[in-house]
C-alpha cells in the first residue's frame, strides 16, 4: 500500500532554531531519507516553503478566485511530506515515527486511495 506522511511542525519554533540546530535537523532528514530509499519504501517527498508563501485557489460562480493564505490559527503547519510504500499501517507508522519532525511536531499518516 502507499501512504502519504504529512509532517506538521511549528514554523515559529523552527524559525527560532539556531544555525547548528538547523544543520543537525537537515542532516537527520538526509539520513532518514537515505534509509527509506535504500529500504525501497521511498516514493517521493519534499520540504515545503512556509505557509506565508501559500496561495489558495477557488472557483466561485465560474470565476477563479486567488487569495493569500490559508492562515488558519493552528499551532502546527504542514511543512513537508513523504510518499511511501509500506506493507500495512504498522509499517507505515513505524516509518512515520522515524521522521525527525515526529519528536516535536506530528505526522499524519494517510493511505492513498488507488485509482483503478
Amino acid at each position: 500500500m502507499q501512504y502519504l506522511l504529512l509532517i506538521y511542525v511549528s514554523e515559529s519554533d523552527e524559525s527560532k532554531m539556531d544555525k547548528s540546530t538547523l544543520e543537525a535537523v537537515h542532516a537527520e532528514y538526509g539520513t532518514f531519507t537515505q534509509g527509506i530509499i535504500q529500504g525501497g519504501q521511498f516514493k517521493g517527498g519534499e520540504r515545503l516553503r512556509p505557509v506565508a508563501t501559500a496561495s489558495t485557489v477557488r472557483i466561485r460562480n465560474g470565476k477563479t478566485v486567488i487569495t493569500d493564505g490559508p492562515f488558519a490559527e493552528t499551532r502546527e503547519q504542514l511543512g513537508g511530506f513523504y510518499m511511501i510504500e509500506a506493507k500495512n499501517l504498522d509499517e507505515a507508522t513505524a516509518i512515520a515515527a522515524r521522521i525527525p519532525g515526529a519528536r516535536h511536531g506530528s505526522i499524519e499518516v494517510r493511505p492513498i486511495w488507488p485509482m483503478s
Binding site: 501512504y3 509500506a86 499501517l89 504498522d90 507505515a92 499518516v109 493511505p111 486511495w113
Partner: peptide, 14 residues
C-alpha cells in the same frame, strides 16, 4: 480495510 490495519500478531517489539 482502507488504512491497511494488518491482520497480524504484532512483532515482538510492539
Amino acid at each position: 480495510r482502507d488504512a491497511g490495519i494488518p491482520y497480524e500478531t504484532p512483532p515482538p517489539h510492539l
